[in-house]
């Protein structure tokens, strides 16, 4: 592999956004996985499909409409879930299918699939612009600051809602905050792996990291490292072999998971 590819400016942008998104997804995803909300990212991503279609139809930059639609529908579904006592997995199914349904109808109205839709479905990290990179950095910075500031409340309400309430943590607000942050994270990450593979970045590095039997911060750091590794190696390998980056990134993450399972079966990790 020639190091020449590291001199291309599109590759710089891809790697910078990719690494940033990898960190963001693993941190936000850890809270979702621990709340048994692993597929929530997937559901938001599918609802963003409706938002993207809406943007393309209306001639607005599709990511903006995706942000609006995804965050709004994620918050609404959370409200409905609490009010009507619908289970978490059923509410995810509702959110997921309604996003796709809206998207399909709008695409039909606008005269069929376009190339733009495909780049959103499967990601287009090598095409990411300077503006996109700046947006990714800014949103990731903002979300990471919020997580650091509210670290105890976020962890406590994820661990046990009832006890967190007794300790004075505003559990309902924290729940909405997590949903809100998940909405932003998903839409921000669409450029990297696309709508269809988003939950891979949320879930796989975290499931892998949890197996190492460590405390919360160490688990988060292990997860981030695996996530960054998968994204960087995935982007470079896919470029060299001219294959899809999204699929390659996810396969590398799955490889790390499989490797960890192997180490664990061999009894090399603590019994947890």
């Amino acid at each position: 592999m020639s190091l020449e590819i590291l001199t291309f400016s599109f590759m710089h942008r891809a790697l910078i956004s990719g690494v940033t998104i990898a960190i963001l997804c693993s941190v936000v995803g850890l809270f979702l996985v621990l709340r048994r909300y692993s597929l929530f990212g997937d559901a938001i991503a599918h609802s963003s499909f409706g938002g993207i279609a809406l943007g393309l139809l209306a001639g607005i930059y599709p990511l903006w409409t995706a942000y609006a639609v995804s965050i709004a529908s994620a918050l609404v579904i959370t409200k409905i879930k609490d009010k009507y006592n619908i289970s978490g997995d059923a509410s995810i199914a509702v959110l997921l299918s309604s996003g796709i349904a809206v998207g399909l109808v709008i695409i039909g109205l606008s005269g069929g699939f376009t190339i733009d839709i495909f780049s959103f479905l499967f990601g287009s990290i090598l095409l990411v612009s300077v503006d996109d990179t700046v947006l990714v950095l800014a949103l990731t910075g903002a979300i990471l600051i919020v997580i650091l500031l509210l670290y105890r409340q976020l962890l406590y309400s994820t661990f046990n809602e009832e006890q967190a309430k007794v300790s004075g943590v505003p559990v309902e607000k924290i729940n909405y905050l997590i949903v809100f942050m998940a909405g932003i994270t998903v839409v921000t990450s669409i450029q990297l792996v696309g709508v269809l593979l988003i939950s891979a970045l949320f879930v796989i590095p975290n499931v892998t990291a949890i197996m190492y039997g460590k405390g919360f911060k160490q688990t988060a750091i292990i997860s981030m490292s695996f996530s960054v590794f998968s994204v960087v190696v995935g982007i470079l390998v896919s470029y060299v072999f001219d294959i899809t980056p999204a699929g390659t990134i996810v396969l590398i993450a799955i490889g790390l998971l499989a490797g960890t399972m192997g180490i664990k079966s061999a009894g090399l990790l603590s019994k947890n």
Partner: peptide, 20 residues
């Protein structure tokens, strides 16, 4: 105290949650 068996928190992490 209900939690997932493999929830990634140590004893110190749990006690720290209580700390105001």
């Amino acid at each position: 105290p209900i939690f997932e068996k493999n929830f990634p928190v140590t004893v110190t992490d749990v006690v720290r949650m209580g700390l105001r």
